[in-house]
């Protein structure tokens, strides 16, 4: 039922945007952005269920909580970057959209820095020191 609602909203918004775009491209963009934000916020609540399942899984097996935190941060960064990039892309600014995506990628990579440093330290510690 909710799926039908979302699809209906999307179709309505699309038709309205097609009608409005000829006269006022600005309002077409606003409509698109607002629809996107609405669907995004609506789905954020649904994603929470999945995240709860993930947390449960992580808690039951002895995965360190720092792993889960990092993974959730990655998901969040990916979603926000993707969402912003799509809105900007709708407005026709392809360049800015790709920059937003690039920022998202950089942040995800920065997340990996502590892990990589730990692994590198361990590997260096594995090596026999000079003897």
């Amino acid at each position: 039922m909710e799926m039908i609602q979302i699809v209906g909203l999307g179709l309505m918004a699309t038709v309205l945007i097609l009608v409005v775009r000829e006269q006022k491209p600005m309002f077409a963009f606003l409509l698109a952005a607002f629809t996107g934000i609405f669907i995004f916020l609506y789905l954020i609540g649904k994603i929470e269920i999945v995240i709860t399942v993930l947390e449960d899984l992580a808690n039951r097996s002895g995965i360190p909580s720092i792993y889960l935190k990092t993974i959730l941060k990655i998901i969040g960064i990916a979603y926000i970057a993707e969402f912003g990039a799509q809105i900007v892309r709708d407005a026709g600014q392809e360049g800015i959209a790709s920059k937003i995506e690039f920022a998202g990628k950089v942040f995800i990579l920065v997340m990996a820095v502590p892990i990589i440093s730990v692994i590198v330290e361990t590997v260096i510690g594995l090596l026999p020191d000079g003897s």
Partner: peptide
Amino acid sequence: MQRYARLVVGLF
């Protein structure tokens, strides 16, 4: 995004 996330998760 998946490529980058895959790297981090792979490290985990």
